[in-house]
Nucleic acid binder design. Structure first.
Lengths: 327, 327
DNA sequence: CTGTTAGCGCCTTCAC
DNA sequence: GTGAAGGCGCTAACAG
């Protein structure tokens, strides 16, 4: 018997809808007999509360909206897993909305969140998507992930600078003197911060060559090929992300240079592939970021407002065989 | 001005709520002037329709529930991407619910979907999770992905048998005579079907050794080590999935056997890593599966019921360097 | 302890 | 072309 409503239950249990509601929500002040009759009736009817109606009258949906760009698989799934873990542990659902390039579509998707979710977790790493902030229903509590611009809600930031600095120190400690950095695409905040941090932490006696990449593997490969053709010498490459580092490894292999003896190679992110290739990198624990984002949002929703508006997640240096030889 | 309601708009535009509703939903029979006034008022108030209330009165949420087990990252993200692409293209949101081991939790999560979504996409590859079918609010249209048991809704199945058969033919054509198959965990339907298909399509003059694995990389590695210790000879290994195949490659490397000369190696799934390792495998295009699932569900929801109740997705053989030498 | 009633915000007949 | 009124399913005062 599908679609049974609270009134059906009330009729069958021969009580009022109010009693049914109270019994089903474990409120006090319900006679045990009444409660039993209600429970029985509900079970017999296969009654399932209508969550939509419930939210409407409670003004509470127990759902959080997740707005993500169309990003790389690894990140996406890890982030969502972290969000989901925390959310479901605290009784919340996730309403997903990937934002593609299409502006109108995005606007509509965002507006449609109003009245379906209690708050939003938004990730928008590209400076170009600035508008997103303005599209958000301003009434919804929001946690931003990695969004540079100031806003009124909570913001979780990955400390790209700290990660890049750690890498700079690592390479410096290894005695590398002519280092190439391949950047991410223009306008990408992560890319910019990684470059800034790296440059800032590099001792003055080390040469830094910066070349433009776009976070894809081919761009890493092409960058090295170009340097090779130009006869540029270097003994280390810090790629703006792991994918490009993979391209770098490939290019170096083709030109017959030994890693790490001739050239040390490292990336950023620690995607699963990095482990297989023994790539030295900076680990960004996206599962933790997701869990933290959900936790902060739910805290805010439930009134227990913890911590600072800006929270930084520090990534971790993972040293593997592309920068140091095992011994 | 957040939280403006339709009544606020009506008041400001000096019309009735009915007219506001009509104007905002582009219904006919609204005087241009009225429409303009309504639009202006809505914009001034920053009015955003309350999706929850809208669903309640329309009995239509334009959201689809996605119920997944806690599965491997690659699959998860690809499947969800496919679902999201199709869903958002047709104006639907995704409500996520990962089902963990905890039965009660799962039940509650599923029941909470009633009234929040118009239909469900469910993936439950393990025979052990049989109960899931019974937990589903029976009133919701459902598309099952890879669920063996019959049910009343639509079911999308990955044709594991066909994939395994293709692999059997491939190895046979290469002239391999003593083949090892490493299975997935007991009770896993995919694993069982892959074994069955493989065995069925293998010519009689080929020896088949079946060993138990569990879909993890170490289990693939361990399986080969065991065979090696036992002195079992073989010239090909078909791992039940790519992860185990990676373990196999590692183990063979350690025992000094050449791939593919001494031993041909292949897997199943075509995870991204498989491409990097040049692993011959069977590609299961999960993005397509997700998109198809969403498409079928939405078709059903919107009355244009296409196709058969059971739809099979045929995976594709991808031949790479672990079974054939480049030339 | 229990029932009645009035909304939550929106859409939709049904009259005008 | 427009407004008034009822209802989607549920919860939350308020009386009894």
């Amino acid at each position: 018997m599908a679609g049974a409503t609270i009134r059906d239950v009330a009729r069958r249990a021969e009580v009022s809808v109010a009693s049914v509601s109270r019994a089903l929500n474990n409120l006090a002040n319900v006679h045990p007999d009444t409660r039993a009759r209600v429970l029985a009736a509900a079970k017999e009817l296969g009654y399932v509360p209508h969550a939509g109606a419930r939210s409407l009258s409670l003004a509470r949906t127990h759902a959080i909206g997740v707005v993500l760009p169309d990003l790389h698989g690894e990140f996406f799934s890890e982030l969502v897993r972290g969000l989901d873990r925390e959310a479901s542990a605290r009784g919340y659902h996730l309403l997903l909305s990937n934002i593609h390039a299409d502006h109108d579509h995005a606007t509509k998707a965002l507006r449609t969140m109003h009245g379906r979710v209690d708050g939003l977790v938004v990730m928008a790493p590209y400076a170009g998507s600035v508008a997103i902030e303005d599209l958000l229903p301003p009434t919804l509590p929001t946690v931003m992930i990695n969004t540079p611009r100031a806003h009124d809600g909570v913001s979780l930031r990955i400390d790209n600078r700290a990660g890049a600095e750690a890498m700079a120190r690592h390479l410096a400690a290894l005695g590398r003197k002519r280092i190439v950095h391949i950047t991410g695409p223009d306008g990408n905040t992560d890319a910019q911060e990684r470059l800034d941090g790296f440059r800032a932490a590099l001792p003055k006696d080390i040469d830094l060559v910066v070349v433009l990449g776009d976070f894809t593997e081919p761009s890493g490969e092409a960058a090295i090929a170009r340097l090779h053709d130009d006869g540029v010498a270097f003994d280390a490459v810090f790629a703006g992300n792991d994918l490009m580092a993979v391209g770098v490894l490939r290019a170096l292999h083709q030109t017959g240079r030994a890693v790490p003896q001739d050239v040390a190679v490292c990336g950023f992110d620690d995607v699963p592939l990095a482990g297989y290739l023994s790539l030295t990198t900076i680990r960004v624990h996206m599962t933790a970021v997701g869990a933290r984002a959900a936790a902060r949002l739910i805290d805010a929703l439930e009134g227990c407002d913890t911590g600072a508006a800006d929270e930084w997640i520090t990534p971790e240096l993972v040293v593997r065989a592309t920068t140091v030889t095992e011994s």
